[in-house]
Amino acid sequence: MNRFAILRVVAKLLIPAIMLFALYVQFHGDFGPGGGFQAGVIFASAFILYALLFGVVTARKVAPPRLINTTLALGVLVYAGTGFAALLRGGQYLDYSVLAHDAVHGQHLGISLIEFGVFMTVSSAMITIFFVFAGQDVDEGQD
């Protein structure tokens, strides 16, 4: 377990920073470059870094495939649900202006919601794909 000690220590310092940066990209996407897609990828890369250094089996315990699969689908559900919420409030599908008392607030809320949906789906998808690919040899070894 003492192999790559330096890498592990550095990664432990880096992973929270990467996650924080992902959230910054997520919520600052309205003002600077970024948004749900980029934030999702960065967030997933934190998990991938963890999986690379501590093994896919350990990483699967941190992010159980069941949870990841749920958030994977939930992201699209949140996105589409925002559209239906607009529909229910008397607007058109994905017309965020009706979501709040005035149009600009509604747009803001809608964009945040769908960006969050994108974030969930993208990060879960990236984590899933990596776990499945990287987990192949591990599972073969366990057999």
């Binding site: 996407g29 309205d30 003002f31 600077g32 470059p33 948004g35 965020y96 600009v104 607030h105 747009q107 803001h108 809608g110 964009i111 769908i114 960006e115």
Partner: peptide, 13 residues
């Protein structure tokens, strides 16, 4: 939209 980044507003809204 109240969002300064046009890329975000075009993509999302």
């Amino acid at each position: 939209t109240g969002v300064p980044n046009v890329v975000t507003s075009v993509l999302a809204s």
